[in-house]
């Protein structure tokens, strides 16, 4: 049995959007504690981890199930949510469907086909990072947009206590500098200077579900995967992205 009620369908939509930007399909592992999912994108460059504790739901009841869904189909259904809709997710074990129900001015039901997506048993690897930056999503996404003007990859740097988003193209360059006392920065826990370069489109996709005032936790080392964490609608989203390395 699995049944979960979410008070704001629109908020849950962000979680599905975040996953569907990077993944084609996902396996939600549900149990009495909540929902979790871990998956790598098809090119094995990015990892997505979603944790939604049962407390994030208005009502929640589940025993152990693996619920595999096509994210494109799920996303299209979630796009139909209205602003004040409640969302009910329930597993129909007989028909092998996930019922996605919007409750608002009317009750609208979708039955989403289940796929045999095996649960990945992936863990977010426990990497030790020298630097941890808490930054408002809005200014960080703006820095990525600036970088996007000059190249398709971007360098994230910690240099002399500053967090720098830097891009260099054949002709042009862009740079955003966040000092520790900047109003964009919540906190910086700096261990050492560091520098890693990343594909910009992945970074954009990973930060798309965040509202501009949401707080991103960015973990950064040198030529290491970047880890970006934030919360949406009581769900914890964690992304890992492999760097581009000089060859």
């Amino acid at each position: 049995m699995f049944r979960a009620v979410i008070s704001e369908a629109k908020e849950f939509k962000k979680v599905i959007d975040a996953a569907s930007n990077l993944l084609d399909e996902i396996c939600f592992e549900v149990n009495e504690e909540g929902i979790k999912a871990r998956a790598m994108d098809p090119s094995h460059v990015a990892l997505v981890s979603i944790d939604i504790p049962k407390e994030a739901f208005e009502e929640y009841e589940a025993d152990v199930h693996d619920i595999g869904v096509d994210l494109e189909a799920f996303k299209k259904i979630m796009n139909r949510a209205k602003a004040k809709d409640k969302l009910i997710l329930e597993l129909d074990e007989e028909k092998n469907k996930l019922n996605v129900i919007f409750k608002g001015a009317a009750t609208r039901k979708f039955a989403l086909a289940l796929y045999d997506v095996s649960s990945s048993n992936l863990q977010v690897p426990d990497i030790e990072y020298p630097n941890e930056i808490l930054i408002k999503a809005g200014p960080f996404v703006d820095a990525l947009k600036d970088a996007d003007l000059v190249n398709d990859h971007v360098t994230l740097k910690v240099e002399d206590g500053k967090f720098i988003v830097y891009a260099k193209g054949d002709l042009n360059e862009s740079e955003t500098i966040f000092e520790e006392d900047s109003e964009s920065i919540i906190s910086m826990n700096i261990g050492e200077n560091a520098k890693s370069t990343f594909n910009l489109e992945y970074l954009r996709d990973m930060t798309k579900a965040a509202s501009s005032s949401d707080i991103l936790k960015i973990y950064l080392g040198t030529d290491m995967p970047v880890k970006i964490e934030y919360d949406v609608a009581g769900a914890n989203l964690t992304f890992l992205l492999a760097p581009r390395i000089e060859s």
Binding site: S43, V45, H153, L240, I245, S247
Partner: peptide
């Protein structure tokens, strides 16, 4: 020139 590496390169 930099090259995209995979996550698995870090988790061996």
């Amino acid at each position: 020139k930099n090259k995209q590496v995979k996550l698995s390169d870090f988790f061996r």
